[in-house]
Amino acid sequence: MTAREAHLVELVDAEGRALGTATVAESHQAPGRLHRAFSVFLRDEFGQVLLQQRAAVKTRFPLRWANSCCGHPLPGEPLPVAASRRLIEELGVEGVELTEVGVYAYYAEDPATGRVEYEYDHVLVGDLPAGVHPTPDPDEVADLRWVSVPMLLAEIESDSRSYAPWLLGVTQRLALEARPAQLDGR
């Protein structure tokens, strides 16, 4: 078990209210325990989002494409603090202001590893400053690529097995957030 698997996560009810704690490993063993998580999207100046291909050593959904970064806040840790910590750990990116755009609760079983994701997932977005280039940790990230949100939604629809099971839901939350700005002409 990795050190990260021993970290505590916050167990929650269906409305996101804290109920207690468990380790990362315990919360991801079948049948799973609903817990707080976050998914971060980084955007470039063209509105494209950064995807990461999860490293082969990940215990859940290795080598699948996912959002820029994800993780779990420690019990009581503010989401922006936890997400900023993971951006540094996974991508070597600091100083991005993050905004929450929604929540996506889901359950998914990983047939390859037998682990499960049962998460109350806060979706966060931030704009990557011009000139900042991610330097991914190879133990976390196998590859990176930029894609537009409409293209990503089309790709997931045509080949969902290449993507983490939460990616469609969190991308839909992001797409809903982007619509008002597009309507305002921003």
Rank of each mutant, 00 (worst) to 15 (best):
C70E: 06
R145H: 03
L128H: 01
E89G: 09
G71W: 01
G185M: 09
R64F: 00
Q172L: 14
A130C: 09
R115I: 05
A175M: 03
A142Y: 02
L50T: 01
V116Y: 03
F46Q: 15
L124N: 06
V57D: 11
S160P: 15
L11I: 06
K58V: 15
E90P: 04
L74G: 12
R115Y: 13
L51T: 02
Y118T: 02
V149G: 12
E89K: 07
Y104Q: 07
A130P: 12
F46E: 12
Y163D: 05
C69P: 00
A112G: 11
T59F: 09
V141G: 01
V103H: 02
V170R: 00
E140K: 09
L19C: 14
V170L: 00
E77Y: 05
L168W: 15
D143L: 02
V101S: 05
E90I: 03
S148Q: 04
L153Y: 08
T135P: 08
S68P: 06
H133D: 11
L183R: 13
R85F: 12
Q172I: 13
V93N: 05
T2D: 05
A25E: 09
T21L: 02
Q48S: 03
V49Q: 00
G169H: 00
A181M: 12
G126E: 07
R145V: 07
T113A: 07
A178E: 04
G131Q: 14
A22K: 13
F38C: 10
E10C: 04
E15N: 04
A30Y: 15
G126V: 13
V57T: 15
V81A: 11
P150C: 06
R33W: 01
P62L: 08
G126D: 04
D110E: 09
Q48Y: 06
H133V: 13
H7N: 10
E26R: 05
L183G: 06
S68A: 14
G95K: 05
V9F: 01
G126T: 10
